[in-house]
């Protein structure tokens, strides 16, 4: 089970930039192996952080999403960016294990 939200260019502003909760956005693409490794980790973290952090993903393969990928200077995936109040406050590049990412998020969110 997962509470990961699937973003589109149309929902990005409302779900991420105007979100009251902090949002961790996973910029990913289906062709990328490490992104596929990340998916179950994020599914589990979305449950563990439910109510404290939103976890969302944006498929950068979709041509409509490439503007956002370029805005956020995505050059390597998976790229996880933590948004607070519409601003990127932290970035995590490449695959990260659940325990490690979880601990980093706890520290960053001060929870």
């Amino acid at each position: 089970m997962s509470k990961v939200i699937t973003l589109t260019d149309a929902t990005f502003e409302a779900e991420v930039l105007n979100s009251e909760l902090p949002v961790l956005v996973d910029f990913w693409a289906p062709w990328c192996g490490p992104c596929r490794m990340m998916a179950p980790v994020l599914d589990e973290l979305s449950l563990a952080f439910d109510g404290k952090l939103k976890i969302a993903k944006l498929d950068v393969e979709n041509p409509a999403h490439q503007g956002l990928a370029s805005t956020y200077r995505i050059q390597s995936i998976p790229a996880l960016k933590l948004f607070k109040g519409g601003q990127v406050v932290k970035e995590y590049l490449g695959y990260r294990e659940k325990a490690m990412l979880g601990a980093e998020l706890v520290q960053e969110l001060d929870i």
């Binding site: 062709w31 192996g33 200077r73 995505i74 050059q75 390597s76 490449g94």
Partner: peptide
């Protein structure tokens, strides 16, 4: 510079170039 131009996976990141 990883993710800022340096990559170890051409199939993952090639599309950004």
């Amino acid at each position: 510079l990883v993710g800022r131009g340096v990559s170890y996976c051409a199939t993952c990141d090639g599309a950004f170039f």
